[in-house]
Design a protein around this nucleic acid. Structure first.
Length: 743
DNA sequence: AGCACGCCGACT
DNA sequence: GTCGGCGTGCTC
């Protein structure tokens, strides 16, 4: 009998659509070892060895035997469950991404797969006996290579020699040298991967009747171990977190795992503190800046079912849970759940799919649910639990509109002003009453545009279709899209005129300047993403505000997220109209959500808050409904507008972004794409249009838009249309299903 | 994603 | 005459 060697399919973590075939490995007895789907393996690909997963289905006997390579190693990590394999396939199909790219997110960390018995890891020596300052006692010189290692290793440790050297960009001998000097030390990784089990019996908070009703509902869903989607709808301060903590406790008691997805910025120490207070221990965290060792530890603990609760950013959705019993998506309306590099997926929507696969409930929590979420409530796909009122007494703040067409901000000696009389008066009152005020403007830097008074030249980014933003604190110009930075020129780069460049429009730095001028006695502070460079810096700032060392705070949208400032009673929005421009289909919705959230910062304790919105369009539905405090009316108006335009969630969208370094080649290819646009009933394809940033990071961009009825999936349309033409190799075609930002 | 193979400018 | 730039294409 002519016995053929046995083969199996392996999906490797390359941007490849389907699994490749491999020979099963030979054991020491010369007999091939059987493997089951889900086993993690290392396989040769080209001249490299890469991680992959034994996939479902049978190998293709038509692949010639001599092409096949043998599986190099079988990893000891737990088998990836069928649930996760199906999820990977589903996400790849939905997003039109290669299956291997999606799988890569699930394996996420090649280091997790290494067998790490006796792994040697490095950390900083914390109690360094050597004092700073004694100059010539042979203190080791911190060469730049050594400094890089110190910078990378920080205080958390947990680096392997190779990881550390690679990350710092130095050779491993530098690391070993530092060890010899006693600045860093090595130790062996603990063989135990479990996280502490939260203490479900720790006494929870006393819940209000409304909270109790909601939490009872969630708890019984968790106990039923069945899929359902529940929107937890309640204003800031209504106690959503306490409610879903009860559901987490229920999942732990069921012996299953719970996942909490938070928008990146909300993963604050404040959230973790609340969790620790409630459960006595910290949850497992998952986000982009874990050390490799902690990543490995967490990944393995999750897979082994030894991490009962995981809290993380969107990528935590792809982890290999052993038995997921509950998913929470907090601030579900946040746009940052949509990933827009590599695989374009919306973590909230994919989380619903994963919950279905895990037969567990998913909770979408928000004070301002997304329109698509509310439409799903109305059509019965999602259920809703409402938490009425503000927990702890204070009512919602009064919202007033300031019509900038009539209350024009006066000029200051130094230039134009941005604060109206009404807003100035309110700030003065607040400060005199010994309370805190905040000015909100969602624009970093000093001025969003700099132009030449003589020739009209505008300072633009050389790589993007965007103005350069002046950051006066650094005396530099920055591009907020690609990070380009240049020093502020003295003369106009176009006409050479001296002293002719003028800043146009306000950024937060400019508001700080105005605030200091108008209220010289106030303690003004700035809070923006670029002033909060580290968790420590952020905490210091939050402490200063909570200790009332600051009484006039100026901030961008970072101030809207998750901080509690009990003495803040006035919020002034410098430019409420700002987010409404730009042709983004969600512009009105996002503006409403952001301003609603900012408004919620005012008056948390015993004082009622006051919110002033400066607007040039006070009749706009966003402004009117904010003033009336009528969120549902806003959603109603917005739903009508979208329905009329057949826009999401009443129709479907896919953006096709075509980009390349050569503009005429790009236009040629777009023209042939346009010529081959198919005729489809219930769908249309628009374009090509210059993408909103027609030039981004030195690449030209064009965009097509596929719009279809709800009942028709744009994926199929995109697939068949784009399959007709092969893009020249320098041109990249990206399909973004359910696009969010229109950049 | 890497990594090799392949075709055009500055070096011994 | 070669060394090497990175454009292009494949990986079972």
């Amino acid at each position: 009998m002519n016995k053929q060697p046995l083969r199996c399919r392996v999906q490797v973590i390359l941007p490849i659509e389907r699994p490749y075939d491999y020979l099963l490995p030979y054991g020491s007895d010369g007999i091939q070892v059987e493997l089951e789907p889900g086993q993690v393996v290392m396989v040769p690909v080209g001249r490299r060895i890469l991680p992959g997963v034994v996939w479902d289905g049978v190998a293709d006997e038509n692949v010639p035997l001599k092409k096949l390579k043998e599986i190099a190693e079988v990893s000891e990590v737990p088998t990836l469950r069928e649930e996760l394999r199906k999820f990977v396939e589903w996400v790849a199909n939905y997003t039109l991404s290669p299956q291997g790219s999606v799988l890569k997110m699930a394996l996420s960390v090649p280091q997790a797969l290494e067998n790490l018995v006796g792994q040697k890891l490095y950390r900083l020596v914390t109690d360094n006996p050597k004092e700073e300052g004694d100059a010539d006692t042979g203190k080791p010189r911190l060469t730049s290579a050594r400094q890089k290692v110190i910078d990378v290793i920080t205080d958390s440790g947990g680096w392997t020699l190779a990881d550390l050297a690679r990350e710092a960009g130095v050779s491993s001998s530098v690391v070993k040298g530092l060890e010899k000097l006693g600045l860093i030390e090595s130790y062996f990784d603990a063989p135990d991967f479990s996280f502490s089990v939260p203490k479900p019996d720790a006494v929870g908070p006393v819940l209000s009747p409304d909270q109790k009703a909601a939490s009872d509902d969630l708890v019984s869903r968790v106990q039923d171990q069945a899929f359902s989607t529940v929107v937890l709808d309640g204003v800031t301060g209504s106690g959503k977190t306490e409610v879903y903590f009860e559901a987490i406790e229920a999942a732990i008691k069921e012996g299953r795992q719970a996942l909490v997805l938070l928008p990146e910025i909300a993963l604050s120490s404040q959230w973790l503190d609340r969790f620790k207070k409630r459960f006595g221990v910290a949850p497992a965290e998952w986000h982009s800046d874990l050390t490799p060792a902690l990543r490995r530890k967490t990944w393995r603990a999750v897979a082994a079912g030894k991490a009962p609760v995981v809290v993380g950013a969107r990528s935590a959705l792809m982890l290999p849970y052993r038995d997921l019993g509950l998913i929470i998506v907090d601030e579900e309306h946040e746009g940052s759940f949509k990933q827009e590099d590599g695989v374009y997926y919306h973590a909230r929507d994919m989380a619903v799919v994963r919950a279905k696969g895990c037969s567990c409930p998913i909770v979408l929590a928000s004070a301002t649910p997304a329109l698509e979420t509310m439409v799903n409530v109305q059509n019965g796909r999602y259920e809703r639990l409402i938490l009425p009122g503000r927990h702890g007494g204070a009512g919602m703040p009064d919202v007033e509109l300031i019509d900038l067409r009539f209350d024009k901000p006066e000029r200051l000696q130094s230039g134009p002003g941005w604060l109206s009389q009404a807003l100035r008066g309110a700030i003065r009152q607040t400060l005199e009453a010994g309370e805190q005020a905040m000015l909100f403007l969602n624009r970093r830097g000093y001025a969003p545009l700099t132009l030449c008074r003589t020739c009209g030249h505008r300072l633009q980014c050389p790589h993007c279709t965007a103005w350069l933003v002046e950051h006066r604190r650094f005396r530099r110009l920055q591009c907020h899209h690609c990070g380009f930075s240049a020093s502020l020129p003295e003369n106009c780069p176009s006409c050479e005129a001296e002293d002719s460049l003028v800043p146009c429009g306000p950024g937060v730095e400019r508001i700080v300047e105005e605030a200091k001028l108008l209220f010289p006695e106030a303690n003004v502070a700035l809070m923006a993403s670029d002033t909060m460079t580290s968790p420590a810096a952020t905490k210091a700032m939050v402490d200063r505000i909570q200790n009332r060392e600051v009484n006039l705070l100026v901030g961008t949208q970072v101030v809207a997220k998750g901080y509690h400032f009990p003495f803040l009673t006035l919020v002034g929005v410098v430019d409420a109209d700002l987010g409404l421009f730009g042709g983004d289909l969600r512009a009105a919705e996002r503006t409403f959500q952001l301003l609603h959230q900012v408004a919620g910062r005012a008056g948390r304790a015993e004082h009622k808050g006051r919110v002033l919105l400066q607007t040039s369009d006070p009749k706009h539905p966003v402004m009117q409904t904010l003033k009336e405090g009528d969120r549902d009316k806003f959603l109603e108006i917005e739903a009508e507008t979208r329905a009329r335009g057949h826009l999401p969630p009443f129709g479907r969208l896919a953006a096709v972004i075509v980009s390349g370094p050569d503009e005429s080649e790009l236009d040629n290819f777009c023209a042939s794409l346009a010529r081959s646009i198919p005729q489809i009933d219930g769908a249309q394809i628009l374009g090509p249009a210059p993408a909103p940033l027609a030039l981004l990071r030195g690449k030209f961009r064009r965009r097509f838009l596929i719009m279809s009825k709800r009942t028709i999936a744009p994926q199929g349309i995109a697939r068949s249309w784009l399959a007709q033409l092969k893009a020249p190799s320098r041109i990249k075609v990206i399909v973004d299903i359910d696009p969010y930002s229109f950049l």
